[in-house]
Write a protein that binds this DNA or RNA. Sequence first.
DNA 1: CGGGTGTTTGACTTCAGTCAAGTTGTGTGG
DNA 2: CCACACAACTTGACTGAAGTCAAACACCCG
Lengths: 252, 252
Amino acid sequence: MIRELPSLVIPGVTIDVLKASCATCSMHQLCLPMGLDDKDMERLDQIIGRRRKVARGANLFRIGDTFQNLYAIRLGHFKTCQVSQDGVEQITGFQMAGELLGMDAISTDLHHCTAVALEDSEVCEIPFSTLQQLLGDMPTLLRHFHRMMSQEITREQSVMLLLGNMQATQRFAAFLVNLSSRYEARGYSPNTFQLRMSREEIGNYLGLTIESISRLLSRFKKEALLRVSNREIEMLDPPRLKAVAAGSQTCN
Amino acid sequence: MIRELPSLVIPGVTIDVLKASCATCSMHQLCLPMGLDDKDMERLDQIIGRRRKVARGANLFRIGDTFQNLYAIRLGHFKTCQVSQDGVEQITGFQMAGELLGMDAISTDLHHCTAVALEDSEVCEIPFSTLQQLLGDMPTLLRHFHRMMSQEITREQSVMLLLGNMQATQRFAAFLVNLSSRYEARGYSPNTFQLRMSREEIGNYLGLTIESISRLLSRFKKEALLRVSNREIEMLDPPRLKAVAAGSQTCN
DNA sequence: CGGGTGTTTGACTTCAGTCAAGTTGTGTGG
DNA sequence: CCACACAACTTGACTGAAGTCAAACACCCG
């Protein structure tokens, strides 16, 4: 039931003709349909477009693409990155299932960042103009959509805090604690998880170099804060890690 | 016509009982009513609450306050700041006339930052629950509101870029270029303006120290990029300053 | 099994921070 | 209007956290 639609071939992006359904999606308590009753959820389902598979490394959209759809992540992980005028890339976020991609494009109808799948992933395509019509007569959906946009603003403000006045150690601890709580919210173990991004990507996101990330991992390992094996992370002492993230524990 | 309402005394915040009017406000082409026809603008006007004067240094709202209103700046300048767990303050933005304050509070109904007036200022109070009803049947307003939220997301992403991988020189040049373009959009001179914030506040925003800002100002002065007199800035060579901001000019 | 990418570790460098002293500006009360 | 006090800013000397460069090592995949 999966085929490449010849009219819309994007490398690594295939289109699943099975319609997505919010009601049966495990993410519906975190995603756009949160709090909707069955009738409203049905209406939302009807406007949601194709389900797309995005292969690891493939772009879902790129800076400068015209904006048509928001994307809800069903499965997998993405990174979003900006490029400065001198061509340097900055990762602005890592997104996981239940999160929405593309909200920064609403302002100008052009995407301001590129979204790349960190592993084979699946998204629901949400045509924005149709969504907007629906928002007009579904106050619950409108409210939740605003919450999601606002949440994105809040998230970015906390990254500004992190980049603006935290030390490397604190940044990295905060990063791990943040991932942990997001996995927990999705029903996964908060203490053991797989990093979906490379050391280089973590460093880029945190405003640090790959070497610094590597050294920090080694230090946290030595301090018995973490067990690390490649991209597998186990938090051995979450309270202390949180204290390091909060800046109340120096961690020599 | 200006009096302190005894029921709502906030230090430095007085309430002007004259109703605000979007139609006569010089900011209506940048602010929420952008693009509305006369009839719709009238409807928006009717839901807009009091006009408030906020004295220099006074808080419009604080972290943790319950969210009731968005605020549109009619006049003056604000800063918004976050506080990290260890009590360090991070300025997340400087806002000027025509910009909206409080959008980060929608997600949890609590303000996530504190807004402080940098000079005597005036804002329009926009009760959010009333606004939301209006958004339901004014698609043009809905669209523009989404654009403004999205713009805030984009703005923050570009600050992340700045904090994440620009050098001090580049950060500061980018900051000045950004201010310049915002003054230009408001019909003021893009090349001569008054800084409304202290060196310390600039440093905090840019993730640098007050000493670094001072040294950068001196260097830009010596390089004939700026004329500086206290908080008065004159850009002597905007193209070169833009080149420094873009990272294409090193500026020894 | 070999090649390439991704990661770790060490030695050295540098940019921006810290500390300290001095200067200029501002606002208040005599 | 001046004098004083305090805040804001500037400048210099020194320090240190994180970056750069380089080499070695580990893991993955054909």
